[in-house]
């Protein structure tokens, strides 16, 4: 088992639209005895907008947070898949290009050595899945594990499971007593940053994901990315309208499912924050 105290980078969304991801992450880690020390004074990683248009920003912004973690001398736990991706890419690019590292050091501090180990929360839970105190196994819960893009790609950089057919979340679900589904859209794109700009595309992409999950009888989707959660949850009604569908699929963070299995209350996991209310389904299954 690896270190039990991590530096923790929640990222902007976990303090706003994805507050329940932050809440459930902290609750689950506390229950498991994993210490999370939030980075002091962290700033935004730049998300998809920075690397979309400005390489300097895309590297410099995450580097500042990486340096803060480096100073703490602890591996950096990240819950948001998008932040995880940006931090990993930065670490990778700075390791590959000395000149870039020097340039970045001039911006973030000359003592920065690019040695921070970035770990995603899913990895942390996955590694401990066999020693988790599961007191309320998620019996009968059919879960479609949805990994999205940012965790698994580019594989050479994130080195996170198989980019086409990942298994980590599925195996975690098994450890929690749930029944993972074999399906085709584990790593298909949900529409990412398009909700405000090309909602038509977002609806189409998210629809095919939700539609197969529904068709295969999933009770809910398990996700690891606040952007995916937002898109799939917030726009489900619009999808139903657009495609005359009748989908009512709770989109839960894997941390929330882990928390439920470990006996945490729906309140402690902030389950009420979701647009598609998962409680009726969970109550029906006797899980809440």
């Amino acid at each position: 088992m690896s270190t039990d105290t991590y530096a923790y980078y929640p990222g902007c969304t976990l303090h706003a639209t994805a507050k329940e991801y932050d809440v459930s992450t902290r609750a689950v880690c506390e229950k498991m005895g994993i210490g999370l020390e939030e980075l002091k004074d962290w700033t935004c990683c730049g998300a998809s907008s920075a690397h979309t248009t400005n390489e300097a920003l895309a590297i410099a912004l995450p580097a500042r947070d990486l340096r803060t973690a480096e100073k703490m001398g602890k591996p950096l736990a990240v819950a948001c898949a998008l932040c995880f991706n940006r931090l990993k890419v930065t670490e990778h690019e700075l390791a590959a290009d000395k000149a870039k590292l020097e340039a970045v050091k001039a911006l973030v501090g000359n003592d920065y050595g690019n040695t921070t180990e970035v770990v995603h929360l899913l990895q942390i839970l996955y590694d401990r899945r066999n020693t988790m105190a599961v007191s309320r196994p998620l019996k009968g819960l059919k879960v479609a594990s949805y990994y999205g893009c940012m965790l698994v790609r580019p594989h050479e950089i994130t080195k996170f499971d198989d980019p086409e057919n990942p298994q980590m979340m599925d195996r975690l679900m098994v450890a929690l007593g749930a029944q993972p589904l074999e399906w085709d859209f584990k790593t298909a794109c949900c529409g990412a940053s398009l909700p405000l700009t090309r909602r038509d595309i977002l609806l189409k992409l998210s629809h095919r994901i939700l539609a197969q999950a529904q068709q295969l009888g999933a009770d809910c989707l398990a996700v690891a990315c606040p952007m995916c959660q937002f898109n799939l949850d917030m726009y489900q009604q619009a999808i139903n309208q657009e495609f005359s569908a009748k989908i009512n699929m709770p989109i839960l963070y894997f941390t929330q499912l882990a928390g439920l299995a470990m006996g945490l209350s729906p309140k402690a996991l902030d389950l009420a924050k979701h647009i598609i209310d998962p409680l009726p389904m969970l109550e029906k299954k006797g899980l809440a």
């Binding site: 303090h15 004074d41 400005n54 300097a56 920003l57 410099a60 340039a103």
Partner: peptide, 28 residues
């Protein structure tokens, strides 16, 4: 809106990166 101590640092980086285009080394 959030209040962060690092905000001023971010502003500086923006002005460096923004004024010189996309290259990190150019910014420095």
């Amino acid at each position: 809106p959030p209040k962060v101590g690092g905000a001023s640092w971010v502003k500086t980086v923006f002005s460096k990166a923004g004024s010189t285009g996309p290259d990190v080394s150019a910014a420095v």
